[in-house]
């Protein structure tokens, strides 16, 4: 009971702080925080597979980029309104996940390698198919989203919009992972053969999780393109897929706040380090190494371990 109320209080404090942020933060911080929400959402999509289903997907940037590109191309080149372009982006990214979902036929290291290769298809497509995607330059001048005459043009308005979407997603995600479906995913992560002998169609469960993960990543992609107002092949790169999975792990895999905390730490650290140290990619690499070796359960795991007064520390696998 105590643990539960602790969690609720923390969630309420976090939401209150997020709501109040625009009152105190300057544009630099607002940009960074919005970015943290969007990447946090992408990291959450990684963690549905990683933290619950035990699958490590390295092609999440593909869904993100396909959704973002679809929305951008429809809006900029064909002049469709947001009400068409944004859902189309979501659908395109999710359809790609439906297609790529065949990767769940494999497990373990094969799954990792295959998703890397699948991710490169999209990167190659957006990079080389220049006549359609704009190649290296990408798609620029994406207008602010507007629905039925209302335009979400100001930075603060868009901040609140992203925050609302993220909170709704977090609630939906919470329901999902606490459902029997979420339980069976964790059952598969624990022991797939056991779940199979209990009569579960494990591959179908993993496939469904993969598609839902693709949907969340696509949502992040649509939010990203309206936030950034342009999109280029970097969004589809392997590096993005790796970075968001690191965010999920740094924050705490298997939790909801973890990926967002991880996104905050990662983006905050990168911004800070790159302002005074030339080798900032090396520093990020060192963070990878340190996390894997010393904090595999992430920041949430560290906090759980040191939080006083609440029973025994739980071992997060």
């Amino acid at each position: 009971m105590k643990v539960r109320s602790y969690g609720v209080v923390m969630a309420l404090i976090a939401i209150a702080a997020a709501l109040a942020a625009p009152l105190v933060a300057d544009p630099f911080w607002m940009t960074l925080i919005t970015q943290i929400y969007i990447y946090g959402l992408l990291a959450l999509s990684v963690d549905l597979l990683l933290g619950h289903a035990g699958l490590y997907s390295l092609c999440q940037a593909s869904f993100f980029a396909v959704a973002a590109y679809t929305t951008a191309i429809l809006q900029v080149r064909y002049g469709y309104p947001t009400i068409v372009a944004a859902p189309a982006g979501l659908i395109a990214g999710t359809l790609l996940a439906v297609l790529y979902g065949s990767a769940v036929r494999t497990r373990g290291v094969y799954f990792i390698l295959i998703t890397i290769a699948l991710g490169y298809i999209i990167w190659g497509a957006v990079y080389r198919w220049a006549s359609f995607t704009g190649g290296d330059n990408g798609i620029t001048n994406v207008p602010p989203p507007s629905v039925a005459g209302f335009s979400i043009a100001s930075q603060t308005a868009y901040y609140y919009f992203v925050l609302t979407v993220v909170i709704l997603c977090a609630f939906g995600y919470r329901i999902l992972i606490r459902s029997p479906f979420g339980l069976s995913l964790r059952g598969i992560k624990g022991s797939e053969s056991r779940m199979q002998s209990l009569g579960y169609r494990t591959t179908m469960h993993l496939y469904a999780a993969f598609v839902i993960s693709g949907l969340i990543a696509s949502l992040a992609g649509v939010l990203y393109v309206y936030y950034n107002r342009f999109i280029n092949p970097v969004a589809a790169s392997f590096q993005i897929s790796v970075e968001v999975s690191l965010m999920a792990i740094v924050g705490g895999s298997g939790t909801i706040v973890g990926p967002f905390i991880g996104a905050g730490v990662f983006l905050g650290l990168r911004n800070w380090v790159s302002s005074f140290f030339e080798l900032h990619t090396a520093v990020m690499g060192a963070v990878f190494i340190a996390t894997v070796l010393w904090a595999p359960s992430g920041i949430v795991g560290l906090v759980e371990r040191w939080r006083p007064g609440i029973g025994k520390p739980k071992d997060q696998p």
Partner: peptide, 22 residues
């Protein structure tokens, strides 16, 4: 643990790549 290996070695590659750039 292949997952840990992949993350760890990607991190190593980032460090090496940046040092090479320098």
């Amino acid at each position: 643990n292949h997952l840990a290996q992949v993350l760890l070695t990607v991190g190593i590659a980032f460090v090496l790549g940046d040092v090479a750039l320098k």
